[in-house]
């Protein structure tokens, strides 16, 4: 078995507002023997907003992140689906087109940097489902979550655009479902699992965003879910932090706890609720964590 070692890119959200996801990831990776090396120079990917501002600038700044990983001779691992999508899309464009790679490198040269265009990027979810392996993961489980019905919330950016991401199947996603099963829990099937949480327009069209969040949560609950798990901190912000607003808008109590992927894995590995910082969530998971 090859030693798994990555340049670690948690993304801006998990450095502040969802830092519980970062802490849980570090503890889980330590427990599994996956080595994470910090990237002190890494800038924000732009979360799509930088692409709105200027696509070429976004290419160059994403190339800068890959250039840093290149100096470390490591592939990048992120725990944010939006970072995954933005960086993978930029990387696809630079791989497919020499002129776009040159464009990025022209800007990088002003900062004394260079990117080969050959960088690789993965997500904790994909590493668990494939590189680390589901069988090996399930062997590490000391507390199978057999009592939990978990609604996987893939959201958008770990699935689409598939020509840039390449791992999961947007029509028939399997990675998150498989990890839930490996932890001993039961995945819940529902249509909203591959749809949008609304995060991108929280500050632009709040009414639409909050209704969208509520619709996903209510569907998962109707299908019998005890909780949700998501590989994306932005989805977590809407599904958890905005759940109260969604309840008000929908005129009904929802009360569904939402886990970051690493938190659910950590609980099954026997790490404590305290280590997983569950009190940082706005919707309490007290009733369902044993």
């Amino acid at each position: 078995m090859v030693n798994l070692k990555y340049a670690y890119y948690p993304g801006c959200a998990s450095k502040e507002i969802t830092k519980e996801a970062d802490k849980a990831t570090r503890l889980v990776c330590e427990a599994l023997g996956i080595e994470l090396v910090d990237m002190p120079k890494a800038n924000c990917c732009g979360a799509g907003l930088l692409t709105d501002y200027d696509y070429e600038l976004s290419l160059a700044l994403n190339a800068r992140i890959f250039a840093e990983a290149e100096t470390m001779s490591l592939d990048i691992l992120t725990i944010c689906s939006t970072c995954l999508m933005v960086m993978s899309s930029a990387n696809r464009d630079m791989k497919n087109s020499e002129s776009e790679l040159n464009l990025a490198n022209n800007a990088l040269s002003s900062a004394g940097l260079h990117y080969s265009g050959k960088g690789k990027l993965t997500h904790l979810l994909w590493v668990l489902a494939k590189d680390y392996g589901l069988e090996k993961l399930s062997k590490k489980v000391v507390k199978p979550l057999t009592w939990l019905k978990v609604a996987p919330f893939y959201g958008c950016h770990s699935l689409r655009p598939s020509d840039a991401l390449g791992m999961d199947d947007p029509q028939k996603p399997w990675t998150l479902d498989a990890v839930i099963k490996a932890l001993g829990a039961q995945p819940v099937e529902y249509k909203g699992k591959t749809k949008c949480c609304g995060f991108q327009i929280d500050l632009v069209a709040e009414d639409t965003a909050v209704k969208m969040t509520g619709k996903r949560l209510i569907e998962a609950k109707t299908r019998g879910a005890d909780c949700l798990v998501t590989p994306c901190p932005f989805c977590h912000i809407n599904l958890d932090n905005y759940q109260g607003l969604a309840e008000k808008k929908a005129g009904q109590k929802i009360g569904l706890p939402v886990f970051h992927l690493a938190q659910l894995v950590g609980l099954a590995l026997g790490l404590s609720a305290e280590d997983m910082s569950l009190t940082r969530h706005l919707v309490s998971a007290e009733g369902i964590v044993r």
Partner: peptide, 25 residues
Amino acid sequence: GKMPLPLILPQIDGMDEVKAIFKTF
């Protein structure tokens, strides 16, 4: 503990590089 704190946000290392890239654009 989820309120993002303004003003004390630490900047990343190598900001001079980021600024140089912005400048070219």
